Simulated assay, not measured.
Amino acid sequence: MNFWQNLSVIEPPFVVVKVEKTNGSTPRASDAKMVITHDDVLGTIGGGNMEYQAISLAQNLLKSSQDKIVDWQTFPLIPRFDQCCGGRVQLSFEKVTQQTLWFQKLKNLSLNDFKDYVLIHQNNNIPRTLITLEDFNKNRFIHNSTAQNQFFEPLIPVQPKIIILGAGHVARSLIHHLTPLELDISCYDTRACELNKIKQPNVKKKLFDDAQSMMNAVPNHSYCLIMTHSHRLDFELTKSCLVRAGLLKFIGLIGSKAKKHRFVQQLINLGISSAEISKLECPVGTPNIQGKTPELIALSITYQLLEKLQQDSLRPKDFKEPYCVSELSV
């Protein structure tokens, strides 16, 4: 579950602290959040003196009357906290109680409904409002002269689709590294016994009879990682991926340089173009991490995949200006 889904099961009162704007070098980017209750702190906005001070301010807000439930603070990191990052961070503090309207709606949502809602709020003094994405787009909450300080956040942000073809040792280790991140992860295999070994609840597991039906289920614009138990199945999946190379964000194949050489020769014989073949990353993973254990291979793939995700960054760097949600729904 993501931040807002986890938040929906916390008992108020608590304070939501969020990084709204950043300028220069800062510990966390815009959108980082944490929750402060009377006896606990969940999440982080970057640690250090700034976070310590933010926790103190949130605890004071918890103890205060209902008159002021929203506060904004700007923190210059060097003069105020002696943090060498040197930038400036604007934080919002919102006290949430049983009477907070948006939270009342949030806690009544089913997990499947979260993707259909967005939180909006105005700079400095107006609490969040929870509305549907449909209503959000109808009202066109986009940047204009009267909405310069308006912020929005989908409850489920656009998540890159990671499709792992194969559920063996490397795949399971890779899933272990990827699941803490906000990614839409699916794992496909022809073996139910291997899929059943994946225990992470946020991973979609799908069982297929053959390569073609497996490949037909791979969505466009996904990051595809091929690591099945069978070289024949790997080849069929690789061929199908390369035919769709223009529609996929990434195609990675586990294996050696010798395996790549054999596959490339076969692909050329089948008429796959050199431009399509050039999209194949094999051996998948960064060469900077060497090793043959499933754990090291998975770390190497994670490193390369995160680099690719950073390059493709599907989300705005921060929320300094409002964006139309429909523009993000790719």
Rank of each mutant, 00 (worst) to 15 (best):
D135Y: 01
E153V: 04
D116K: 14
T132C: 10
V118H: 00
F151I: 05
F152Q: 13
F136D: 03
V118F: 03
I131M: 15
I126E: 15
T146S: 08
H121M: 02
F136Q: 02
R128V: 02
K115L: 05
H121S: 06
L119R: 01
F151S: 03
V118C: 14
K115F: 02
F152Y: 09
I126M: 10
Q150M: 14
D116R: 12
P127K: 07
L130H: 13
D135H: 03
R140E: 06
L119W: 00
Y117A: 04
V118R: 04
Q122K: 12
T146A: 11
P127N: 13
D135A: 04
N137M: 09
N144Y: 02
N137R: 11
N139F: 12
E153A: 06
R128Q: 14
K138N: 15
H143E: 13
L119H: 00
I120D: 01
Q150D: 03
V118E: 03
H143G: 06
N125A: 14
Q122V: 08
F152H: 08
T129P: 00
H143D: 14
Q122F: 09
I142Y: 02
I131C: 13
E134K: 12
Y117T: 02
F136G: 04
Q150W: 07
I142A: 07
T129N: 07
I142C: 04
Q148M: 10
E134W: 06
I126D: 15
T129A: 08
N124V: 08
N125K: 15
L130T: 07
T129I: 07
E134S: 10
F136M: 09
N124H: 15
R140A: 06
I142E: 06
R140G: 03
